[in-house]
Amino acid sequence: MIPFNFKYYRPANIEEAVELYQQLKADGEKSIYYAGGTEIVTNARDGQKKYDALIDLKDINECLEHGEKNDEYVFGACLTLNEIVEKDYFPLFSLACRPVADHTTRNQLTMGGNICGKLPYREVILPLMLVEANFVFAGPEGMRTVAAAEAYDKRMLLNEGEFLVQVKVPKKFAELDYHDVRKVKQSEVDYPLLHLAALKDEADQIRIAFSSICAFPFRLEDIEAIFNDSQLEMEEKVEQIVAKFPIPIKDDKRGSADYRRLLLGQSLAEIWHKLGGDA
């Protein structure tokens, strides 16, 4: 049982949602945008978080859009992970969505919730970091479209009162070779020890994004330059790549830093082999 009361609103469009957030803020009420609810409801139940109001975005058409428009795929923020997997417009994206939580939870868990939530894994963002995706935000200043590199740095860079409406992915990236590696401690339904998504771009360079090995997902061009240097042996690459990590490798009860580093080496070698890096 959730041990406190809150108000619940379901606006019909973007303008209503944004105005409501502003009004609640002016009234001194703490509100949060809401989609699948898997994180918000569980955090509320165990008392980790408390809100005065939830603003549910699931009646907003743009947040439910799912399809092709010109040369892009459009993914609304309120699509569930299973909906994305089932339509499978962009296979690397589906691969990143499929192992998150479990199948039943993925009928509820949304793309926007995974990317914008407080949990550190945010695995769904990995492919989006590789493909020059555009993020559409709505807020008090109106709508804005932001490139992945500017939309995300350790977390989604949303301004006060903004929410993610949708993500647009250029179709050409769905045609490229890709590989995805996710390592868990024991059960397949578990938070990962590491999750890497990789894609070979049109210039035959391999792009890699990392989740779960550090405290937040990241992609760094310096790391990709090392990885694509065919003069280096794999062990040298791993050593240099780890030295470029923005923060140290995680060391916790799920896995020691040494163990995660070992898995990282194996996973990078697997990506190199699968994407023809040694061809």
């Binding site: 569980t42 299973n82 039943t104 939870t105 509820q108």
Partner: peptide, 25 residues
């Protein structure tokens, strides 16, 4: 907490964990 699945029900034919779903939704 959304882990065990003992609370599973169907909503529009899809299995959902009812402990993580608000009734107003």
């Amino acid at each position: 907490n959304g882990d065990c699945g003992a609370c599973t029900v169907l909503i529009n034919e899809k299995p959902v964990k009812s402990c993580m779903k608000l009734a107003v939704e």
